[in-house]
Design a protein around this nucleic acid. Structure first.
Lengths: 206, 206
DNA sequence: TGTACATCAGTGAACGCGCGTTCACTGATGTAC
DNA sequence: TGTACATCAGTGAACGCGCGTTCACTGATGTAC
């Protein structure tokens, strides 16, 4: 993204290609076994080439995570657009999209939320992307409050309540422990609906 | 645990000591930088000694995670005992204890839920400990249903709803992203109370 | 009680591995005149 | 238009590192007779 407007040089847009290859490799294995060398190999450049585009390995990881937050924002926006003027349905749809996205790229989700990267201003782009995603959620709830279907109260606290519920389910799903804990087969859609319904119950205005 | 009844031999109870030292080292750093060699060094034995007690590194990690689930079960039991005959308060207390425990040992929590270890029967002790913890939660909800203050419905689904909410908050807290996302300082107790209250709202009988 | 033997916890050298990072380099591209 | 130079993306050899695991061993403990 940062480089995508720059003119191609030598390789083309190695910055983007590295990010893209790294995201793919990340899902093929896991965070700790993702190596700069493997990424370079996948792209077809020497294993030192990435250093022209990323200060070090952590910078690359931060770039991947930022892309993840960006994609999350896109999904939230689409959820809102799917159900204009119906914050309850928007929230439910957002929940489904959150879960689906995480299931599509579980390792990236771990990277985003696993406390692996600093969340402060070390990587401004990462922080900005993360904030934007949370803003998307807050907007839905704010809308619901404005039209009187969600209860009043601290916006961030309500948003965090909802987020926690979905986030918890999501991580339990990608953690893979549920199939061995629950006595029934895991039906992702059913579980997500049940949990968002529960959350909406606690959110609705009296 | 497995060995604690065995008579001391040579070192004493190296199995336990290794588990203990590994748990401590785990919190000092993180999962991927925990090494068998460092554990052995901390205990004061050669770096191959752990192989007499654990098949490989993953087995050791499974042992640590199992201890984590056991401690979780203890906390749930204590939550129940703190408020006899009041499942709502039991649940709230359980939430607080869940969060507190995770904050005390965030890396172990990641190990337990991060999809790092197989959840099937590869490590029976691990699976048994995990199941027991989930049973503790189900028991609280079952009790609440029995005395009519929680709504009817699939027990596991309700338990999972509650668990997801608390689990999500917990992982967001230990992920460390909240202080940089929320505009107000993070008050763990307040957040936990708000979220469990919300969850109870969605759980109560009509 | 004493002795010979079996068991097995713990040792230390050695193996092969992939990793992140550095460094001096090369060569393609862009630019000033 | 042509030339000399500056820039900088990508190279490849080399570094030092810590790791998991294996192996033959040693020596302390337990046990059978």
């Amino acid at each position: 993204m940062k480089q995508s407007t720059a003119k191609p040089y030598h390789h083309g847009d190695l910055h983007q290609e590295i990010l893209c290859a790294a995201s793919e490799l990340l899902e093929d294995n896991n965070i700790s076994s993702l190596s700069l060398r493997a990424v370079a190999k996948k792209v077809g450049v020497s294993h030192t080439a990435p250093y022209r585009h990323f200060k070090d390995k952590e910078s690359l990881l931060a770039g991947i995570a930022a892309l993840g937050y960006d994609e999350l924002s896109v999904q939230l926006t689409q959820a809102v657009e799917s159900y204009p003027d119906d914050p309850s349905k928007q929230l439910q749809e957002a929940g489904h999209r959150y879960v689906q996205l995480a299931l599509k790229c579980p390792q990236c989700t771990q990277l985003m939320f696993g406390g692996i990267l600093p969340c402060d201003d070390t990587y401004p782009e990462l922080k900005a992307s993360g904030d934007m995603a949370f803003d998307g959620l807050k907007t839905i709830i704010e809308e619901g409050q404005a039209c009187g279907i969600f209860k009043k109260g601290d916006l961030e606290l309500l948003a965090l309540s909802v987020w926690s519920g979905i986030h918890g389910l999501t991580l339990l799903l990608i953690g893979g422990s549920l199939p061995d804990i629950l006595s029934v087969p895991v039906d992702t859609r059913l579980l997500t609906t049940a949990i968002t319904t529960n959350l909406l119950e606690g959110l609705k205005a009296n």
